[in-house]
Amino acid sequence: MTSLPTLPATTTPTTSDTTAPSTAALPRTAGRGRGPARLVGPVLSVAFVIVLGLFVLGPLLWLGVRAFATNWTYPNLMPDGWTLQWWNTVFQDPNLQSSVVLSFQFAFVTMVVSAVLCLPAAYAFSRFDFPGRRVFLIGLFATNAFPRMGLFVALASLFYAFNLMSTFLGVVIVHVLGTVVFMTWIPAAAFSAVPRSYEEAARDAGAGRFTVLRKVTLPLAMPGITVALIMSFLASFDEAQGTYLVGNPEYITMPTQMYSLVLNYPPQVAAVFSILLAIPSAVLLLLVRKHVMGGQLAEGFQIR
C-alpha cells in the first residue's frame, strides 16, 4: 500500500492487482486513542450502544423467550409461565424432519453447483481481460435489480415449457440464480488480491500453470471463496418464495413452511421454529465471521 498517501483525496483506496489482500483490515496505529472521548461523550456512546442493541437484538430476544412461554399477558415483561410443550409440538410434526433434510440437501447441492459454475468464471474475471468483461460483470449484477417475485412469475412460463416445475433441478436452478452474484464477485476480488508476483515466482521456479493455481492462488484466495460458499449455502437455506412457486407440492423446505407456520400456529410454535431455522445460519456465519468482517464481502462488491 505504499502508493496510498500520494493518491488524490477524491479516490478510494481500493486494492489494485498488485496489492496484498485485506486492505480493509489494515492496521491503523496512528489514529488510536484519539477522538472518541472528544467526539461524543461516554454517556452518548453507551446510549448509542443500548439503542442499537435494543433495535437489533430486542426483537430476537422477545421472540426467543416466547418459545418457552405458556402464555403472555400484556403489558407484562415476562411470560405467565414456562413450558417446553411447544418444542414437542414442533418435533412431532411429521413434515418437520423431511423439510429440514430437504433444506440441507438443496443448500448443499446449490453451493456445489454454484461453485462449479461460478468459481472458474470468477478466476477468469480476475485474471483474463476478455472482450465485454466489465459488461458481463454488471450484467450478472442486473439479476439483482429485477424484483424476485417478478422473476419467479416470469420464470414460471419457462419452467412449464422445460418441464422443470416441481422438480429438484427446477428448485436448484432457482436457488443457484440467487447465488451467482456473490459466488462470482467475491471470489473474483479474492483472486485479484493474490499478488501476481507470487504466481510469477512460482512459475519461474518451474511450476506449471495448474500447479500454481492449486498451490499458490487457491490457498491465498481461500478466505474469499469460503465466504462466497457459505453465503450461497445460506442464500439457498433461506430461500422461500421461489422454492414454493417452483417446488410445490413436491419440495417443501423449512423456510417455505415457516411462512405458513407464522400465520397459522400459536406464536410460540412459530418461535420454536424460528430458533431451529436460525441455528444453522448463525453457526455457519460465525465460522466465517472473521473474513466477512475483515472485508472479503465488501471487497467483492467493487467492480474492477
Binding site: M165, S166, Y244, L245, N248, P249, L263
Partner: peptide, 28 residues
C-alpha cells in the same frame, strides 16, 4: 401436499391446467 391458506391456489391451478393440456401426470 398442503398449501396453507391456499395463497398459491392460482399457481397450483395453473400447473394442473398445464399438465392436463400436455397430458402429463399432474402433481396430484
Amino acid at each position: 401436499v398442503f398449501d396453507l391458506h391456499g395463497t398459491n391456489d392460482q399457481a397450483n391451478y395453473a400447473k394442473l391446467a398445464a399438465a392436463t393440456a400436455q397430458n402429463r401426470a399432474p402433481a396430484m
